[in-house]
Design a protein around this nucleic acid. Structure first.
Lengths: 354, 354
DNA sequence: CTGGTTACAGTAACCGGTTACATTATTGCA
DNA sequence: TGCAATAATGTAACCGGTTACTGTAACCAG
């Protein structure tokens, strides 16, 4: 096998234009003055030859990849559409490339698919990397921004996430105070997910504030995922009919779809028999049957801001430690409210929240 | 600035293990026999040094990037979640990386962000690249698979998409035959989108088959996109009240959300006043208000199969020219059907559809 | 015992760029 | 006029791997 590739190289451009490769390189990177004469010649020659710089060669020589990585544990959630949109927009603006990789904490056998060897920096969503990995990479000065997760104490890695606890408290408090729900099921997210932790904390404190004992049997693992939520709800209904429940906090909107489906198929009426609430306010949530009461989270902004912070790290700046974006309770029908309730809800909330 | 990077190189590994760099390279790539003795020594040394091969150096030397690219025009659609899932699963299985880039045909000033210079092959969704680009790349032997688009006649580029026309005919035919709709609005997708073209063709032939004249005023551009569809519907309702309509084929489920929202806000009842139908059967579609009548498209399979074909191109195999995956009409409430109608629908369909 | 494989390992050229350093011509200013 | 600063370009080392080519030792069939 010959090692010559067919692609046009910088040397061919240089030769054809009658200049040195260094000049061509400088022209491409606009990092040194080039005479008008030579500039024009190069522009023409490059167009004629359809020259495109070889990315790997550039990366190797410059030690920059012009690539931003996004590390996820899964893509199975509609939540990622706005997140990706926010990230992609910023990446494109800076003329970088975006590589997306999934990596489960379980698969500890091989190293993460993205890191210093193939990206200039990464966005780490949730538990895509262990704390140890995070610390190690940070000590190597590798730019990272955490998304929906905060950094371990010992190390200062910027982090962008949303307010979970307070708004979850409001959500559950609403179910209790306005709709008289007492047996509220919670579908938790993945075990080490911080969103899940804080939503659970908000849930527990709302129960406590209302004198309702926490019932372990009502807490299931929905995984923030449609199919898991569906399966778990079905199992719960089938095998534990003895545990009464009158509301479900699905964890997020995606899981809420699974919950709605399971309840529907088992003859439960929402919201008459069971209130269902989600989190995220995805694009479709207002149009579910019934329209979903949820929490509006600025997910696209999370993506955008996190990526901007990553780029500011590239520039050796130090962005905020933790950026906590505000969330907002969105009352619709699935909790039991009707349009006409709206006024009274506002009043009740004014009384109960804070 | 020093050019020395801090990262561990293959030479350090070689030195510490007392072998040559060639041996280390062979060990990493498993492409030549290595004695058990040396293997074990290398394994240990690499772990100690936390050696990770430098991707760019590898790419440059081997002329392989181990990256597959996905070129989209936008990410603004929930449709991409299943597609991405299918693609990502296969990419991960092969231990490749996935780079996602958006590129609008309009932005012809700079070249596509991904191509032979930074990927081993790409998946081109829809109109991410012009026919000319496609032909040029194909002549350079660059592996490509088209997704939801077919190749220009002159070149043989594999393509994976779904059946649009026949099922769109069935969908519209259903609205006419079963629900007596006569003024059916069509929200087209992006202008050069083949899905859009075939859905429109199915729409027109269903009208014709039922003796309903095509009314230009009922065809709008919804862009297969939630927000555009919402805007367009609102404008239509506000400015052209004189044109009666009793059904909307939204183009896809994402646009259907926008349509439902606009209709709802303007006091139209779905399906009593207006039938609404979509396309794709996204995860949430069964739970919209009302549940959406749509077409189930195997989007994840499209992503999976297209990616598998790309990898088979890497192996110099020749996959199918065009892979057309089957679609299926999914009847729910938004067209006007009720659960009890189901039997009669089946009968009507048996009569009307071929 | 010998010529031919096979297994394993080393040397160094090479992939296609970037950039430190050197060079020459031109301009600015005392 | 003389000398320093600046503009514009060239030369060649270097980035960190891969692999063609070479060499040695062990093994095997005849």
């Amino acid at each position: 096998m010959t090692r010559k590739s067919h692609s046009v190289t910088i040397r061919q451009v240089a030769e054809k234009a009658g200049v040195s490769v260094a000049t061509v390189s400088r022209y491409i990177n606009h990092n040194a003055p080039i005479s008008r004469d030579v500039s024009e010649r190069l522009k023409k020659v490059m167009a004629e030859l359809r020259y495109v710089p070889h990315a790997a060669a550039r990366q190797l020589a410059s030690q920059k990849t012009r690539v931003v990585g996004l590390l996820l544990n899964t893509l199975h959630n509609d939540f990622f559409v706005p997140l990706l949109n926010g990230i992609e927009a910023v990446v494109r603006k800076h003329e970088y490339n975006l590589v997306i990789a999934t990596y489960l904490l379980g698969s500890r056998d091989n190293p993460p698919p993205i890191g210093p060897h193939n990206t200039d920096g990464i966005l780490v969503f949730s538990d895509g990397l262990s704390d140890d990995d995070l610390v190690a990479l940070h000590h190597r000065n590798f730019p990272m921004v955490l998304v929906h997760r905060t950094a371990p104490e010992s190390v200062k890695i910027p982090s962008v996430t949303v307010e979970n606890k307070k708004v979850s408290f409001e959500l559950i408090n609403h179910l209790i105070k306005v709709h008289g729900r007492k047996h509220i099921m919670l579908l938790r997210g993945p075990i080490f997910q911080e969103d899940s932790y804080w939503r659970e904390t908000g849930y527990r404190s709302a129960l406590e504030a209302n004198g309702i004992p926490f019932d372990e049997r009502l807490m299931l693992n929905g995984d923030f995922e449609r199919n898991t939520a569906y399966k778990v709800m079905n199992e719960f209904i089938a095998t534990e009919k003895q545990v009464p429940f009158d509301a479900v906090f699905a964890g997020d909107d995606d899981a809420a779809i699974g919950v709605l489906k399971a309840l529907h198929e088992n003859g439960y009426r929402v919201p008459e028999d069971v209130s269902v609430v989600g989190f995220d306010d995805l694009g479709f949530s207002a149009f579910l049957t019934p329209p979903l009461t949820t929490v509006s989270a600025p997910t696209e902004a999370v993506g955008r801001i996190a990526t901007e912070q990553l780029f500011s790290l590239f520039d050796k700046q130090s962005p905020e430690g933790v950026t906590l974006l505000p969330t907002e309770l969105i009352i619709r029908r699935s909790c039991g409210c009707t349009t006409r309730d709206e006024q009274s809800i506002k009043e009740v909330e004014a009384l109960t929240i804070k």
